[in-house]
């Protein structure tokens, strides 16, 4: 049984070790707006920020070429940094890139490698905690969107999604639906329905 919980709300009388909680003598409390599963004792954030990890795929906007380094806006409290000598092709301020985090530096900087410039398309910003749902188990959800719309979808774990080609509007609608209904079950079916219905019109 899942329930929505808010910061300061008691999850258990016991002192449990769960991510995004705090314990005191009286029990365990949520620190976030989240969906709490009492059986599995997992607490999933409904809103909020991306916590970067090494190896994360991100999408960013090139901010500034500082000569030896290039800074990248990740739409997060962390800045991306590309060491210029690792650049395989030219990039310039304003370019939208997909890239991978090589390592995290102290103070909130992510060193990026293998940047690839994305061409004309639409960049969407979604709640980072909903990204796993947009990808789906073994990429099933994102594949469903690509198959249903002909749109190619690139997903950054930092909450940015890139859409190009095909029916971009329908792909956008599908992603917005997943974002809004991420905490419910049976979502794959409903997204399929949305894609099927729109296609016939």
């Amino acid at each position: 049984m899942q329930r929505i919980v808010v910061p300061g709300e008691k999850l258990s009388e016991k002192q449990l070790r769960i991510e995004n909680t705090i314990t005191d003598a009286n029990g365990t409390y949520s620190c976030i707006l989240g969906s709490f599963d009492e059986q599995t004792l997992s607490l999933i954030p409904l809103e909020g920020l991306w916590q970067p990890r090494n190896g994360d795929t991100i999408i960013g906007i090139v901010e500034e070429d500082r000569g030896t380094t290039v800074t990248v806006n990740l739409n997060a409290p962390y800045k991306g940094l590309i060491i210029s000598k690792f650049l395989e092709s030219e990039i310039k301020a304003g370019d939208i890139i997909v890239s991978t985090i090589k390592e995290l530096e102290k103070g909130g900087t992510a060193i990026l490698i293998r940047p690839k410039v994305l061409g004309a398309g639409k960049l969407m910003s979604v709640t980072p905690s909903k990204i796993p749902r947009i990808i789906g188990k073994a990429n099933t959800m994102v594949k469903q969107i690509t198959d249903g719309t002909g749109t190619s979808v690139v997903i950054g774990l930092n909450g940015l999604v890139w859409l190009s080609g095909g029916d971009v509007d329908l792909a956008t609608a599908a992603i917005l639906k997943i974002e809004e209904e991420a905490h419910t079950s049976g979502l794959t079916e409903r997204v399929k329905e949305l894609l099927d219905n729109k296609k016939m019109v």
Binding site: N73, G119, A120, L123, D169
Partner: peptide, 23 residues
């Protein structure tokens, strides 16, 4: 640090077809 949600090319390509991103 506003993230633009659409790129320039996307908007311009649409306008050349007489369209806009919100239809």
């Amino acid at each position: 640090m506003k993230i633009r949600t659409v790129t320039e090319d996307f908007i311009k390509d649409l306008l050349m077809k007489g369209q806009r991103e919100d239809g």
